[in-house]
Amino acid sequence: MANDKKKGLDTNGNIYTIVYAAVMVVIVAFLLAFISSALKPKQDANVENDTKGQILAALGFDRKAVDVQKTFAENVTDKVLNNGQLEDYDGPFLSSYGTALKNGDLHVFVAKTATGEDAYVLPVVGRGLWGGLWGYIALDATKTKVLGTYFYHESETAGLGARIGDRDFQEKFIGKPVCDAEGNVALTVVKDGAAKQDYEVNGVTGATLTSKGVGAMCTEGLAVYYLAGFAAQCEQPCQQTECDTTEVEQN
């Protein structure tokens, strides 16, 4: 079609211009639609693989070195929190948890860490400077201490806010208590170098707003689970050590 018009046509004419624009748009639209639908299954598989890799990263696995699908199947079970009880989840694996959390479907991954410890992984979502943030926080069996985290973002500035995706930053959370002395969920992020309390983590230099976003995501995201009856520890004031001893006595 385009070839007919190549020679001997007034390329400045109205009709030619309109036909040219129409043909071009249709061709490009078909091309993009075709490519998008042809690549969709592969992209979805990548996204699912990536999400599972992120959960494994929070559990301390080296996601680049392990077979993600196999390790995930061996170590992680997808459960849903319902009236304070963990129930089996039998729907399809979700690649993002924003909508699920908004609808009140609180997913909990019952898992083993890379070192074989029992852990619970909780998905959280929040907002950074430019767009959404999400993360997975692995808590120990007593639900009071962080074993590992994984955070990522939609569109934070490369080299600044995007550094929340670096392992260096995520590893700063390891060993932090979830709650403060009053028994509130308190795990948060503060300006780099300003962390004084146990539950405060130093943020990323030059990315104050993204760091605050991560902090709010942790505090609010975890609070939702604790309010829904995921764990009772935070409701009563107690020191970490006291809590541990009562746990032992009960056992």
Binding site: T17, Y20, M24, L31
Partner: peptide, 19 residues
């Protein structure tokens, strides 16, 4: 370049780049 109508050339360029 020889087929592109002069008046919409920027739009054509943009479509090509965007695609």
């Amino acid at each position: 370049r020889k087929t592109i109508p002069n008046r919409i050339r920027i739009i054509v360029q943009l479509v090509v780049v965007a695609a």
